[in-house]
Simulated assay, not measured.
Amino acid sequence: MKLEIKDIHKSFDGNEVLHGVHFSVESGKALGLLGRNGAGKTTTIRILMDVFKANSGSITMDGKPFHPKEYKIGYLPEERGLYPKKKVREQLIYLAQLRGVSYKEASDSLKHWLKRLGIEEYENRRLDTLSKGNQQKVQLAQTLLADPDIVILDEPFSGLDPVNSQILKDVVLELIQDHKLVIFSSHQMSYVEEFCEDIAIMNHGSIVLNGGLKEIKRSYGQNRLVLQLAGKTPEATADICRQELLSYVSVYEKQKDRVILELQEGRTKTELLAAIVKAKLDVEAFMDYEPSLTDIFVWKAGDEA
């Protein structure tokens, strides 16, 4: 399956909040839908689920108009929505039946997911008696109970300790391997880098960057290099580069124990390395620069910072 969001516009009371949003995601892959609070991610997801209607644009599945009722969608919202005073089993089976799952199927699926997530002992406990992390795992069980075709996870790691985070990471990887269509939204960029082949970054209601994560990293690291000199602070290394290598590079950024250099126009990495050797600099590290997703996100969506 291939889901495509094409040129979606949405206004509220005459104020346009989505300006031609576009991205796609395929079964067996995870898309990282990223953006600061208020960027338009939740509105986009609600349009996808037919909670809101778009003013214009289209959503297709395999080239045909997408109708959410024809697919099983599992949605884990950032703002949790279960009933705190109700028992876990009671409400999860009820919610699964609302989505067309039989009582027996819901009961069997519930047993599987509670065991898989390590919370089977809480099956007949009220939700509000559980820890925040276990409540989050109940929410995830609810998301997956009906064996959805499309899984939308919004900040799924919220409230989880490292052990439970690993359980959830394993589950997300299993969903991808099972050829589910996964949309993953989180501010924890390390998880996005771990799961997502593709990303779409939103800013002020527009997609400002969209594509394969590896290719994006490669393009943002182009003509940039990492240099670390033995026994030198980043400040000292930057000063030496300005004195000895100015015609080859500029100092792009200073980091914890290294500097990021940018090649001057027309210069090559081989020429820079020869200049470093000629200057008799004691090199501890010299390599191509690959930016983190956090770096890229700040560059594209950090305009207000």
Rank of each mutant, 00 (worst) to 15 (best):
S107W: 05
L48D: 11
L110S: 03
R116W: 05
R116F: 04
L114F: 06
P65N: 10
M49Y: 09
G81W: 04
T129L: 10
T44N: 01
T143S: 11
R116C: 05
A146C: 15
Y75K: 00
G118N: 12
K72S: 13
T129H: 06
R126Y: 14
F52I: 08
L153G: 05
M61I: 15
T129R: 12
F157E: 13
Q135N: 11
Q136D: 13
L114R: 04
F66L: 02
L95S: 05
I119D: 10
R89G: 03
D147R: 07
H112M: 11
I119A: 03
V88W: 00
M49I: 09
P77Q: 03
G57W: 00
S58Q: 12
T129Q: 13
N55R: 12
G100E: 09
I152L: 03
L92R: 00
I152T: 01
V101M: 13
K85W: 14
K87I: 09
A141V: 15
E79M: 15
I47R: 00
A141Y: 10
K53T: 15
A146N: 13
T60I: 03
E78A: 02
G81K: 05
E70V: 01
L114N: 07
I93G: 05
E120Y: 10
M49L: 15
K72M: 15
D108G: 05
E70F: 03
S102L: 14
R99H: 02
S56W: 00
D50M: 14
Q97F: 11
V88F: 02
L95W: 12
N134E: 07
P65I: 11
L98C: 11
R116S: 02
I150L: 11
T44Q: 05
D62Q: 15
G159E: 02
L145W: 01
S131C: 11
M61Y: 14
Q142R: 10
L95I: 14
P148K: 01
L76Y: 08
T43N: 08
L48W: 04
L127A: 01
Y83R: 07
N55H: 14
L144R: 06
L114D: 04
S158P: 05
D50P: 15
I73G: 01
A141R: 12
L92C: 04
I93W: 08
S58D: 11
E105V: 14
Y75I: 00
Q135R: 06
N124H: 06
S107D: 08
K53M: 07
D154W: 02
Q136T: 15
T42W: 04
P156Y: 09
D128T: 07
L82E: 10
Q136C: 13
F52N: 08
G40V: 03
V51A: 12
V51S: 09
L145G: 09
E120M: 10
S56Q: 00
Q91D: 11
D147V: 01
P65M: 06
I47C: 00
P65C: 15
G63N: 10
K53H: 07
T60R: 02
G100W: 04
E79K: 11
I152W: 05
L140D: 10
L117Y: 13
G38P: 09
L160M: 14
N134Y: 07
L160H: 08
S131P: 04
N134Q: 06
I73W: 01
H112P: 14
K86D: 08
E90D: 12
K115N: 13
R99S: 03
G118T: 08
D62N: 08
D149I: 06
R89H: 02
Y103S: 10
P84Q: 01
M61W: 14
I45A: 03
